[in-house]
């Protein structure tokens, strides 16, 4: 089935059914449903394996094969449309070890990455992680950057990671790219990107009580006056 066609069919076509297997049992479900909606249509009430249902939270990792195809596929159940002959199983939980650290006591360098995730050097360059990523992130490339200590590069390239962990589920070197990504982003943001001076200044001003009197006044004035002030606001260009 061509995914590009999904959603453009006329109503009668949408009544077409496809045959899928959920954990080995066969069900007929309407064409065009996402995996999560297909499972619910088949009668599964999902507890583990559903989250935002919008592709943001990574809760609904799913593994599947297609009839007559030796490959193993992964995807998000809320974003992947069912195909005829799909054999699928949700991944309710996937063990992956996250290193624990005190972010205030790290250096933003290769040494930190290697100490916390020594398996980084085990990458065999198979690209399974990139193929698994539902966000189309070049995971293998950012892991290569991590291995070079390019923390800013990892943070930038891995930014869209939703931490579903599907990359880790397919890695023959048993790496945890999604956890490397979050570490790199935190290191970059805390140590490499300059702090916002205007922010520090405003925090000082609030601390020193600079706005106390005017804020207090705002809570006291009557609604009529408040409306006047609101309607007279100048809007920043």
């Amino acid at each position: 089935m061509d995914r590009a066609e999904v959603g453009t069919q006329e109503k009668e076509n949408q009544q077409d059914m496809v045959s899928i297997h959920i954990m080995g049992k066969r069900y007929e479900v309407p064409f065009g449903l996402t995996i999560i909606k297909a499972m619910e249509h088949a009668g599964y009430r999902v507890v583990r394996g559903a989250g935002c249902r919008g592709g943001f939270c990574g809760a609904c990792g799913t593994v599947y094969r297609l009839e007559g195809d030796y490959r193993l596929y992964v995807g998000l159940a809320c974003q992947t449309v069912v195909e005829d002959g799909m054999y699928l199983a949700q991944i309710p939980f996937y063990p992956a070890t996250k290193a624990k650290y005190d972010i205030t006591e790290l250096d933003a360098d290769l040494n930190t990455l290697m100490q916390l995730y020594p398996e980084l050097s085990r990458c065999v360059g198979c690209n399974s992680c990139t193929r698994a990523c539902p966000q189309d992130i070049d995971v293998m490339n950012y892991m290569a950057k991590a291995l070079r200590g390019d923390i800013a590069g990892v943070a930038d390239e891995a930014f869209d990671c939703i931490m579903c962990g599907l990359c880790a589920s397919r890695c023959p070197a048993e790496e945890v790219p999604h956890y490397v990504a979050v570490l790199a982003k935190r290191l970059y943001s805390r140590y490499i990107a300059p702090p916002a001076e205007h922010l520090a200044e405003r925090v000082r001003e609030v601390d020193s009580g600079e706005f106390d009197a005017r804020l207090n006044e705002m809570t006291q004035i009557d609604q009529q006056r408040l409306r006047e002030l609101y309607n007279a606001r100048d809007i920043e260009e």
């Binding site: 935190r186 290191l187 970059y188 943001s189 805390r190 990107a193 916002a196 001076e197 922010l199 925090v203």
Partner: peptide, 19 residues
């Protein structure tokens, strides 16, 4: 915002750190 910045939350910033 300051708390998040110190925790390493990756706000979009200009090169000089301005949010």
């Amino acid at each position: 915002i300051k708390w998040l910045e110190e925790l390493g939350c990756m706000f979009s910033k200009s090169d000089d750190g301005t949010m």
